[in-house]
């Protein structure tokens, strides 16, 4: 079983990347489970043809106890990809991080975390212990950072590196950085910049995903690119990416950059 987690700045395209990755992996004949770890609950929407599935936390909230069954939380989407949404509290109340921890405990108890590949799609930043849950022992062993060439996006990715290096230093921890994914914003020399960033933190750029209108078109049609435009170049990029993920043997403990070094790096590519 391969367990991977995608982290990155909010709005950078984690869910789009995750959904297309899961779709591409399933077409390789793999049993794939995608878990959305964000109270916004929209990670699996494209895989579910636009439907927002009930979340684990919705059920807990309604029932008042964690006595939920596998059928109630796992939904089959495109090409049999199994989808789970953790969900969480309404914005502004309670503790979403604890919600993620509770969801993992429930999924574990139900024996739900069993597939050829488990893809964890985690919210913007590792704001607290709860959102580092997928990186803990027994869960994702490979973390992929999704970033563009924008400074704020690199900054978030660098920050997540801090969580990875902290967690990977723990005894028995097998959590490592698997690579950096550049989800391009069409900035000049973006691919080079992200590749150099990846190298500087002690990793590598596993995939460059160009910006393409077909992604928006697919989403407007409530489908992944893999499903909506399988013949497109973008779909081929995602399929290539899925193959690379399965073949990737490079796992690193990253060394986060100092803020100044990060700024210098971004500045060097700005002209």
């Amino acid at each position: 079983m391969k367990q991977i987690a995608l982290y990155g700045k909010g709005g950078i395209g984690k869910s789009t990347t995750s959904a297309n990755l899961s779709a591409a992996l399933s077409l390789q004949g793999l049993d794939v489970l995608q878990i959305g770890c964000d109270p916004k609950r929209d990670s699996t929407r494209m895989l579910m043809q636009g439907t927002l599935i009930p979340t684990v936390m919705d059920l807990v909230r309604k029932r008042g106890d964690p006595a939920v069954t596998l059928d109630e939380v796992v939904y089959r989407g495109f090409h049999g990809v199994r989808c789970v949404e953790a969900g969480g509290p309404e914005p502004g109340v309670g503790c979403a991080g604890r919600g993620i921890i509770a969801t993992f405990q429930i999924l574990e108890k139900l024996g739900a975390l069993d597939a050829d590949v488990v893809v964890y799609d985690v919210l913007g930043d590792v704001v607290c212990g709860g959102f580092a849950m997928p990186m803990r022992e027994g869960y994702a062993e490979e973390v992929y950072l999704v970033t563009s060439g924008e400074l704020m996006s690199l900054y978030a990715a660098n920050n997540i590196c801090k969580a990875i290096s902290r967690l990977s230093s723990r005894a028995r921890s097998r959590c490592r950085l698997g690579g950096v994914i550049c989800n391009a914003k069409n900035l000049p020399r973006e691919e080079e910049l992200v590749a150099e960033f990846a190298e500087k933190i002690g990793s590598f750029m596993i995939q460059f995903i160009p910006r393409d209108q077909v992604v928006q078109q697919s989403e407007l049609n409530r489908r992944t690119v893999i499903q909506f435009a399988p013949e497109s170049g973008q779909a081929e990029v995602y399929r290539t990416f899925a193959r690379k993920i399965m073949e990737n043997r490079r796992l690193d403990i990253p060394t986060p950059l100092e803020m100044e070094d990060l700024e210098d790096l971004a500045y060097a590519y700005s002209t």
Binding site: M57, V60, R61, G64, D65, G88, P89, E90, V93, G94, C95, A96, R98, G99, A102
Partner: peptide, 10 residues
């Protein structure tokens, strides 16, 4: 309980 911790206890 944990439920209120997650969803708020007001």
């Amino acid at each position: 309980s944990e439920r209120e911790v997650i969803f708020g206890g007001e």
